[in-house]
Amino acid sequence: MANTTTDHNTIRKWVEDRGGVPATVEQTADDSESVGLLRIDFPHGSRNDRLSTISWEMFFEKFDSENLAFLHEDKAANDELSRFCKFIHRAEAE
Rank of each mutant, 00 (worst) to 15 (best):
T24H: 05
I54V: 10
W56I: 00
S55W: 01
N9T: 09
E26T: 10
A29P: 03
D49N: 10
F63N: 07
I54P: 05
T10L: 12
A77N: 08
E80R: 14
G45W: 09
A76D: 15
A2S: 09
A76I: 01
S32N: 10
T53I: 13
L81W: 06
W14Y: 15
E16M: 02
E61H: 14
V21C: 13
S55M: 02
N67G: 11
S46T: 13
V15M: 02
N3Y: 13
H72Y: 15
D7E: 14
G20M: 00
T6L: 15
L37E: 02
A77S: 14
D64S: 10
T24P: 05
T4H: 10
F59M: 06
N67A: 08
D30S: 12
D30F: 08
R47G: 08
F70E: 07
N67F: 03
R90M: 10
F70A: 10
F70Y: 15
E66F: 05
K13Y: 14
A2C: 08
R47W: 03
T53Q: 15
K62E: 14
A69S: 13
W56C: 03
L51R: 09
A91L: 15
A91T: 15
L51F: 03
E16G: 02
F87T: 11
N48T: 14
L38I: 02
D49S: 10
K62M: 07
K62Q: 12
D49V: 01
G36T: 07
S32C: 03
R47P: 06
V35W: 04
F84W: 05
I88R: 06
F42R: 01
I40E: 08
K62W: 04
I54A: 06
K13M: 08
T6V: 12
R39Q: 07
D7F: 02
P22Y: 07
M58P: 03
D17W: 00
K75L: 15
Q27V: 06
L38E: 02
F59P: 07
S32G: 09
Q27F: 14
N3S: 15
Q27E: 11
D64H: 15
D30I: 13
V25C: 08
L37Y: 08
H44M: 05
T28L: 00
